[in-house]
Design a protein around this nucleic acid. Structure first.
Lengths: 246, 246
DNA sequence: GTTATAGCTTGATCCATGTCAATACACCTG
DNA sequence: CAGGTGTATTGACATGGATCAAGCTATAAC
């Protein structure tokens, strides 16, 4: 950290903010020039640390900023008046939270840290301003939102047409893929969420999730112990998808 | 149409393009000055007419433009390799289609006209350009995308936690609300989609949709005959939501 | 006007997942 | 290390919606 004195100070400070946290093309800084990165950095100054179970924002909160996950793990969820909960997503390093608030100036879901986490606070008014000046930033931001729309389509497909085991397979492969992108093992990881949260995300009850885990273990597709998952046969897991049982 | 000669020619041409079709704040032109509207108009020049069942774009098509529905009715859907279909949305006048393509430069779903329709073609590169110049346009565009994210959250909630009759009630109330916004009757309308398409959207089989319709009719909540729906008791229909059965 | 076809309704049955309940496990606290 | 609490597993049973099947109704085609 303190070494590498060949790097000019200005660059080090840039690195500390955006270059370091943006895992390649995950965040908003992809493809920006050094100069542009510096502008983005000055905007992103603020950080916020959250303890496990703390809310980053709640449904109804006024919208002021979007957030880039630096470290940690989040869930977003929506609550119905009668108490039913739908987890709408899990977010990890490099992913953006809070865009649901842009349309109405009010957040429409809750965002909760599932472990101690840190986010970059990106004040929205300033982001709009800067993305009128920096085309690459504008483009990145639009791409992030659009990909979120596509992600949602995938989840609708899952919730609307898949059976329990397909859903869990899709979930595990998605997790694996995202860990891989971040340089972690594709085959072995620790889930940060409970069976109930997975179930809520997948439109299943926690018992059904648990049974599907057990089934996969019997079938030697995975080895699972509580939150620790090892994927033994990703190929077969993948084949479970896109092949209707009848 | 040909009358009203008091309106200057420049305004008439503006009206023909954006002022007329954008039902208030639905489209992208909300809050733009006359001058800005003219810029947007020059961008939106092209129109496209589609016959019933024609594709506006297909999954895999290169992304070039987004589309504003001028007249008619669309559905978007995603297909799985094994043939399973998930309808991800129904779009009517003033709504924007195609934003799924921004993230990957490729459309991720199909968009099909459910009746003869017309759209405004908005070339995306030019929209980005112009929205760097016109703050109100940038803001509108972001709001449209964000509202789409929020809409998706609602659909996930529906697919993940609601029972068949709740889903249909939510669907009918949503339709009613959107027709109202467009100046049509809230209580009486013609659906443009089949039971199968409704089912696909709601994560149900067409038979289940049909049975739920019949049930609502028995209960005097609605009067339904094929695609024609009259809402008799919107209040009770609304109470069906947000009240878990147990 | 007749026929064909797609769409819709309704009934009978089946099955995947929900529900309820008991137990086990892991982790934290003191 | 004991106890407690939240989490996970597993079993038995219930049920909502899927499936299969038959018939009906509107609309389009000829």
């Amino acid at each position: 950290m303190a070494g590498k004195s060949v790097i000019p100070i200005s660059l080090v400070s840039v690195k500390a903010a955006c270059t370091q946290c943006s895992l390649h093309e995950l965040c908003l800084s992809e493809g920006l020039s050094q100069e542009e990165l510096a502008s983005l950095d000055s905007l992103v100054g603020a950080r916020r640390k959250l303890k496990r179970q703390q809310f980053l924002y709640r449904a109804g909160d006024p919208f002021e900023a979007i957030y880039a996950v630096r470290t940690g793990f989040f869930k977003t969820d929506v609550l119905l008046e009668d108490g039913r909960e739908q987890v709408t997503g899990f977010q990890m390093a490099g992913e953006i939270l809070g865009m649901d608030g842009i349309g109405t100036d009010t957040h429409s879901c809750n965002a909760v840290a599932l472990e101690d986490s840190e986010v970059c606070v990106i004040p929205y008014a300033q982001l709009e301003q800067l993305s009128r000046e920096i085309q690459a930033l504008q483009r990145n931001f639009h791409k992030v939102m659009s990909r979120e729309l596509v992600r949602d389509q995938g989840l609708m497909m899952l919730l609307g047409t898949m059976r329990a085991e397909e859903r869990l397979a899709a979930f595990l492969l998605n997790m694996s893929q995202r860990f891989t992108t971040r340089g972690y093992s594709a085959a072995e990881f620790n889930l940060r969420m409970t069976r109930e949260e997975i179930g809520s995300y997948l439109g299943l009850k926690l018992e059904t999730v648990s049974r599907a885990f057990s089934r996969f273990q019997e079938e030697r597709l995975i080895a699972v112990q509580q939150k620790h998952v090892r994927i033994l046969d990703g190929e077969r897991l993948r084949r479970l998808l896109n092949h209707a049982p009848r």
